[in-house]
């Protein structure tokens, strides 16, 4: 498996490498591409006075330094190379590089940031989540702590699905992930009270129906998977009632709005992103 790491020479970048290395280790020909994306200088953003002040050559030397540092963080046994490219937009550059290198996914280090009560993935992550044609994998310090507690090994895959047709594809990707690493697969669905028109009478029935649908679905795919349907007054409450083990990895599907083979993250997935403290991937359908 080959992953592209969107690298910045700071704590986030180190976290992204750590997660990416954990994900590829144990797969067939584990390989990382560490991407350092530089802003493209356009003539219309000319600095005045005095030309570029030698900035390009200093930056170039700095990138070499960062590249050497990044290589040192990758564990032995993983094939790794560093690419640096100037592009007009970071997200576009990462997508381009992922395509060129044939990577299966893009890994980003990130922070959980709350602005006015909303979780905002960083600008780059957000752009990728709405346009990437490969999986986007995200970490946070909390997620890394969970991975470290499991000695840097992925221990279980959890696929978040709804009860819609898209579920099959998400489960299938999660299953491929799980099989490649020989870990258990769990399929989870979140139900909020507002998902049914009259929670008092219909909720239970809805939960039973969803569980039945997912069990039949995984069985029909020939998978050994545990199915969990959890509910709560709100989505947040539902997420909280899920149990997590150290080293767990979550997979979410792209929203139905998305164009084929492109990501588009929906409102439900946004909420899940905000709540989860494990590393996660968003896969295109």
């Amino acid at each position: 498996m080959k992953l592209l790491v969107g690298y910045t020479a700071d704590q986030r970048g180190a976290e992204a490498i750590e997660l990416a290395a954990a994900l590829v280790q144990g797969t067939l020909s584990p390989s990382l591409v560490i991407a350092i994306v530089l802003p493209a200088s356009t003539p219309f953003s000319t600095v005045y006075p005095g030309g570029d002040h030698g900035f390009d050559s200093i930056l170039s030397a700095k990138v070499d330094e960062w590249a050497a540092h990044a290589l040192n963080q990758v564990p032995a046994g993983v094939t790794v190379r560093v690419v640096a490219r100037s592009v007009p937009s970071v997200a576009e550059g990462l997508m381009e590089l992922a395509e060129d290198s044939g990577a299966h996914g893009i890994v980003l280090g990130g922070r959980k940031r709350h602005r006015a009560g909303f979780f905002m993935p960083g600008g780059v992550a957000n752009a990728l989540l709405h346009a990437s044609s490969v999986s986007v994998i995200m970490s946070s310090p909390q997620a890394l702590a969970s991975l470290r507690a499991a000695q840097g090994r992925i221990t279980r895959m959890t696929a978040f699905v709804g009860d819609r047709p898209g579920a099959r594809e998400v489960i299938a990707s999660a299953a491929r992930f799980a099989t490649a690493r020989g870990v258990d697969l769990r399929v989870a669905t979140l139900v909020a009270d507002s998902d049914v028109s009259d929670p008092a009478t219909e909720l239970n029935q809805h939960l039973v129906r969803t569980r039945k649908f997912l069990t039949e679905l995984t069985d029909s795919m020939g998978l050994q998977a545990s199915v969990e349907v959890v509910s709560g007054q709100s989505l947040d409450e539902a997420i909280e009632s899920l149990e997590w083990i150290d080293g767990e990895f979550a997979i979410l599907g792209s929203a139905r709005l998305a164009a084929t083979r492109r990501l588009f993250i929906g409102p439900k997935a946004q909420r899940i992103l905000r709540q989860l403290n494990v590393p996660m991937a968003v896969v295109p359908n």
Binding site: L38, V63, D64, G77, T79, V80, R81, S86
Partner: peptide, 12 residues
Amino acid sequence: RRDTVEQPDTGL
């Protein structure tokens, strides 16, 4: 481990 740093790709 096979490390390669691709210099010509920097575009700088």
